[in-house]
Each structure stands twice: as C-alpha cells, then as structure tokens.
C-alpha cells in the first residue's frame, strides 16, 4: 500500500449549465443568472479543492473485497473491481468554509442557498473528475486502466464502509474530513470513492 498523499488543486472551471441542472432548472431567466453570478462571487473565496489518496492491493472473492486490510461484502463493488489487482482510494472536499457560507445563506436566503448547494455539488464533482482523469492518465502511462469511481452507498456497498475507508485514508488529519455519528460526511460537500486499476480495459 502506498502512503496517504495529499493534494490541492486550483479551482476547476465552473460548468454553469451543470449547476443549474443540479438546482433543478432546465432554463434560466436573467434574474436567476444574476443570482448565480452573485453566488459564485460569494463562494469563490470559501472554496478549497483538497483531496487525499493512496493505492492499495485488492482481492475479490465472489462478493467480498479485501482492500488494504479492510474487508467488505458487496456484490456491486466486487463486480466493479473484478479483474483489478489494485485500487486507488481517495477522499475529496471543498472544505468547511463553503459549509459555513451555505449555512449562513440557508438562514438568510434560501434562494441563494439552493443555488449554492447546486454549485457545491458541481464543484466537488468537478474536483473528483479532475483527479480521476489525472489518475487515468498516469495509469495509462504504466499500461494500466482505471475503472470509474465507486463510492459507499452505490449499489449494495454499505455506507458503513465509510469508517474503514476514512481510517485507511486518515481523512481527518489529511484533509479535515470527518464522519458524524450517523455516518454523514462533514464538510458536507465531500466525496469518498474507490477507483479500480486493471490490466485490461473494461469490456
């Protein structure tokens, strides 16, 4: 298993259409675009783009996966990781500053809060996409192929798998990401996931 590495990124470009899609809008009036612009201005200084990751060996037996010493039973994950010998574990967050802004606007202006919520979702996805693409390229140079990312809660991979995953990634120390008693992530705009690495391209 490789050590836990940390990484910070400059802000990836914002896809406004994606933000509006998350906010449930198929089209946007001028007023709404103005509000979105305002939200982007407010959010920009609060956003961080941090993640931590490490590579671990994986062994799949039927519907059980052994990942860096942690064992989890999940047919969906086992299917997803079939043919992989290694897996990249990562956790990413846009940070607590954004949660504070969201909390504030949720009290002052639910309209802005809804757009910020959507913006946060788009931002964390953009960060994960950036990292996944980077890893895919790196592995391709070694003649390996990355599977798409897979998070606790997908298919039958239990949310309870967050705890061992967080411990493997040392999330709190590495990027300030914690789990609440009910297993939610805090800061809220965060993602934890696994990327299978295989010798063969997925069919």
């Amino acid at each position: 298993m490789t050590p836990v590495c940390r990484k910070s990124y400059p802000p990836p470009p914002v896809d406004e259409r994606e933000v509006l899609r998350y906010a449930g809008c198929r089209e946007a009036s001028e007023d709404m675009l103005a509000l979105l612009a305002e939200c982007r201005r407010m959010a920009e200084p609060t956003l961080a783009f941090r993640l931590c990751y490490r590579e671990a060996p994986v062994a799949v037996h039927e519907s059980t996966c052994d990942i860096g010493g942690a064992r989890v039973s999940s047919a969906s994950l086992a299917g997803h990781l079939a043919g992989c010998e290694r897996v990249i574990l990562f956790a990413a967050t846009v940070g607590l500053g954004f949660d504070r802004l969201l909390a504030r606007e949720s009290r002052l202006s639910p309209a802005r809060a809804v757009l910020l919520q959507a913006l946060g979702a788009e931002r964390i996805e953009a960060l994960c996409d950036l990292f996944s693409a980077e890893m895919a390229k790196e592995k391709e140079n070694e003649g390996l192929f990355c599977r798409s990312r897979f998070s606790p809660g997908y298919g039958d991979l239990p949310l309870a798998f967050q705890a061992p995953l967080f411990s493997l990634l040392d999330c709190e120390r590495a990027i300030g990401l914690t789990l609440t008693g009910s297993g939610l992530m805090s800061p809220t705009k965060s993602v934890s996931a696994l990327i299978g690495v295989a010798k063969e391209r997925m069919l």
Partner: peptide, 8 residues
C-alpha cells in the same frame, strides 16, 4: 417556474 425562482 423552478425552485430558485420560487424562492426568490
């Protein structure tokens, strides 16, 4: 009308 507009 979409949710952000309703809220505005």
């Amino acid at each position: 009308v979409y949710l952000p507009q309703l809220l505005m």
